[in-house]
């Protein structure tokens, strides 16, 4: 029982939580501005992880550097599928009537494609590399350097996202679009450009999160899916489209996961995550969580 109150678990929960915060932030941007349910978000995380893995193993590039490459590539991919697929979906009045459902199916199809293309190209053996894995001790808490790096970078990225949404003109425009689409258009927000930007930032953050993860986790073509589920739990828990509460919810889920597994057993990990997922969806339907933006 005494291990429950150790700094070790707290640190683990913070690391997992900060990854969830990053993933959910991107998911929330795409949903908030366009009402699209991105079921392929975790697969962008997977692509980001592979980018860092290959750049590290082939050219020795530090993941702290290659995360910028992964972020840029993911953002570019986001922009490409926005132009290629989703502009059509949003513009077609018949399809956008059931926009959320259709986008879920569409993203699910993309997710299946990405997973299996990755499995074809990189095969399914789990891969990993070691970087900054020296152990650093603070008091009686042992941490690896890469986990500390994950925590710090995630915190910086969240702070940057927060400031961007608060003060930058495009950040304000994103928030305006989340609050009221038509009103935003009336006051002169360029909807098209903001949607493209949301896609690029959302996907870019997922790619960055993947790079960070690649330092600490094994990389497989199917690693992304649990993060999609965790992202949805976080976003629904924090209120769809509500970015700041989403950050808090991501941390909360990290704590639930780490302490839940510590209290029960690691084999119940998936049962726990899906249990939370179900409960959160029930609560959402009862209107007990944040209301959706109109």
């Amino acid at each position: 029982m005494s291990t429950l109150f150790s700094g070790q678990l707290l640190f683990a929960a913070l690391v997992v939580g900060s990854i969830y915060v990053l993933i959910a932030l991107g998911l929330n941007l795409v949903f908030g501005t366009m009402r699209l349910l991105d079921a392929a978000h975790g697969d962008i995380v997977m692509l980001g992880a592979y980018t860092s893995f290959w750049l590290f193993t082939l050219s020795g590039m530090s993941p702290l550097l290659s995360m910028l490459v992964a972020g840029a590539l993911s953002a570019g991919f986001g922009a490409a599928i926005y132009y290629g697929l989703f502009r059509r979906l949003l513009a077609n009045t018949q399809l956008s009537q059931r926009l959320e459902g259709n986008s879920l199916l569409l993203f699910f199809g993309i997710s299946i494609i990405l997973q299996n293309v990755a499995a074809l190209c990189f095969d399914t053996t789990p891969r990993a590399y070691t970087y900054l894995d020296g152990i650093i001790r603070f008091g009686n808490v042992a941490m690896t350097g890469n986990r500390i790096a994950v925590l710090i970078i995630a915190a910086v990225l969240c702070a940057a996202a927060f400031l961007f949404l608060r003060f930058h003109i495009y950040g304000l425009a994103i928030k305006a679009l989340i609050q009221h689409r038509q009103a935003a258009a009336v006051v002169g927000v360029n909807i098209e450009r903001i949607q493209l930007l949301s896609f690029a930032i959302g996907f870019g953050l997922a790619g960055l999160a993947g790079s960070l993860l690649s330092m600490t986790e094994q990389i497989t073509p199917f690693m992304g899916f649990p993060f999609t589920v965790a992202g949805f739990v976080t976003v629904i828990l924090g209120g769809l489209g509500n970015l700041t509460r989403g950050m808090a919810a991501g941390m909360f889920l990290g704590f639930v996961e780490i302490y839940g597994v510590a209290l029960t057993s690691p084999s119940l990990h998936s049962v726990l995550i899906y249990g939370v997922f179900i409960v959160v969806l029930f609560l959402q339907s009862q209107g007990l969580l944040g209301r959706r933006p109109s």
Binding site: L106, G109, I113, N116, V117
Partner: peptide, 16 residues
């Protein structure tokens, strides 16, 4: 894997 890719592509095609 090719089968799954085709299935995903079909889903995208039929939705759009």
């Amino acid at each position: 894997q090719v089968y799954m890719i085709v299935l995903g592509a079909l889903l995208v095609f039929f939705v759009l």
